[in-house]
């Protein structure tokens, strides 16, 4: 037994040496960390939640992540992507601002890195897959919330930052189709009702869709003007995260809180608070946390040569959640936890 002692001590020395040696080895491994970029379509609290998912995945999968939020639209986004390619990143997740006209840019990026889209897809491009929700389904879910708020029908206006974005178009079409009880459309061959024209059928009438180009003051003024022009307006649907809070401000100041029903998207605190207060009927959360998380997970695997992570359809669907008064408090608590984990 005594002969074992030197052996054990030798073993422990070797182990200690291994630990010691593994330090530089480990940093070497860190140096070889895959670099992944997560490009959003703008600046918004929505993306803060997605960023939390990115940061969680960054730790979990041992990758290096850059989160880039273009504040000035399509030109800014293009510049950022070109910079990333110049720096030589391994993978990029892009939320295209204007998919149709960015296919060239995305295909160019595909030649130099693994590229996926998230939040908003770029159909027809060579991106490897799309991580996001089905915006059309989300629109229909929002339409269901409108129906819950106005069971006997009414007049509805839609507010959005830009109509050029595919997700805005799909969401709006989902709302329209649900309210008019039309059959579900296929994402690939979708027909869009032109905005700016009154759409009606059955008890629901969609008066107009107003855009504000991400100017908060315009968003609020649009809601005010909608109330001024249409005294019988029953419901406002905000397609982008900030739209519904701005509508709520305008509705409150007009003294119509609770009278004009509001339905929103995403999970800004002002929206959740509005739901808890009973001023907002509900919101559709697309769980952006998982956008960030799964984008990084998939890109990491791809850059290590593992293509099994790609869904066959090319669409990795993150399920949506309907938030109503009943589940708002719990949803908010969970969201705060996730965001804290991301930081």
């Amino acid at each position: 037994m005594t002969s074992m002692k030197p052996f054990i001590s030798l073993l422990s020395v070797v182990a200690a040496l291994a630990c010691f040696l593994s330090e530089p080895l480990h940093t070497q491994a860190q140096g070889a960390k895959k670099r992944i970029a997560y490009v959003t379509n703008g600046v918004d609290p929505f993306w803060d939640t997605a960023a939390a998912g990115v940061r969680t995945a960054e730790k979990e999968f041992q990758v290096k992540c850059d989160i880039l939020m273009p504040p000035k639209g399509i030109v800014d986004q293009k510049r950022m992507i070109e910079n990333l390619l110049a720096q030589g990143v391994d993978g990029i997740a892009i939320s295209p601002i204007d998919a149709k006209n960015q296919i060239g840019l995305i295909n160019e990026a595909c030649l130099q890195a693994h590229v996926i889209t998230h939040d908003s897809d770029a159909p027809g491009s060579k991106r490897l897959c799309f991580v996001g929700m089905n915006n059309y389904k989300a629109g229909r879910a929002a339409g269901k919330l409108v129906k819950e708020a106005l069971p006997s029908g009414g007049k509805i206006m839609i507010f959005v930052g830009r109509m050029e974005q595919l997700n805005a178009q799909q969401r709006r079409q989902g709302v329209v189709d649900e309210l008019l009880d039309r059959p579900e459309q296929d994402l690939e061959k979708m027909k869009f009702a032109p905005p700016g024209r009154i759409v009606s059928g059955g008890p629901y009438q969609i008066l107009d869709t107003r855009t504000d180009n991400f100017d908060y003051a315009r968003a609020k003024a649009n809601a005010e003007d909608a109330m001024a022009a249409n005294p019988d307006l029953n419901c406002m649907v905000g397609l982008f995260a900030y739209n519904t809070p701005k509508c709520l401000e305008a509705v409150k100041e007009a003294g119509k809180a609770g009278k004009i029903k509001l339905v929103g998207f995403d999970e800004q605190d002002a929206v959740l608070q509005g739901i808890i207060d009973g001023h907002i009927q509900g919101t559709i959360s697309q769980q952006p946390y998982f956008y960030g998380y799964h984008s990084v997970r998939i890109l990491n695997a791809l850059s290590k040569g593992d293509r099994s992570v790609l869904p066959k359809s090319g669409f990795y669907e993150v399920p949506i959640v309907q938030v109503r008064k009943a589940n708002a408090e719990a949803f908010r608590a969970e969201l705060k936890k996730l965001q804290a984990a991301g930081k």
Binding site: V43, F214, K220, Y242, P245, E249, A270
Partner: peptide
């Protein structure tokens, strides 16, 4: 006044 009116600010967009 703008910040108070909107009750929230977006640093990249407010006043652009």
């Amino acid at each position: 006044l703008f910040a108070l009116d909107l009750n929230s600010i977006q640093p990249s967009g407010l006043g652009e």
